[in-house]
Design a protein around this nucleic acid. Structure first.
Length: 113
DNA sequence: ACTCTGACTATTT
DNA sequence: CAAATAGCCAGAG
């Protein structure tokens, strides 16, 4: 796995986000061993839009804010998708973020990397 | 090799 | 407590 591109790894992790759960860019970055590359994770999601396996809408910033909603179609698609999974979203922010938060470091541990 | 940029984060004002 | 500031790193031109 270490021989894969940063993006590839991001996709692998993002693709493992369970239904109805969300995580943050920083969490993914940390899991990949690049805790300071949260921005890269977000940018990676840019290309994830083409990958249905990568639920970019389940990835938000550290406070559960839908910071990347502007990269989705329409004005509230991202929020709709999340609400569709049972996640309460209010004003572009996930309610009870901690409750829905999914930490790859804790949930995946040394799964596949 | 250099510069610009960004779906972030932590810190300071 | 909201807004500005500063690190951060990797991909693209």
């Amino acid at each position: 796995m270490e021989n894969k591109n940063f993006f590839e790894k991001v996709y692998l992790v993002a693709a493992k986000i369970p239904y109805g759960r969300v995580t943050s860019y920083g969490a993914i970055a940390k899991y990949l061993g690049a805790a300071r590359s949260a921005r890269m994770v977000g940018w990676a999601m840019n290309g994830a839009g083409k990958k249905p396996e990568v639920p970019a809408h389940r990835v938000v910033n550290r406070v559960g804010l839908l910071s990347g909603k502007h990269h989705f179609e329409g004005t509230n698609l991202m929020q709709q998708l999340l609400e569709n999974e049972g996640i309460e979203v209010e004003d572009l922010k996930i309610v009870n973020f901690q409750k829905h938060f999914w930490d790859p470091v804790k949930e995946l541990e040394e799964d596949f990397l």
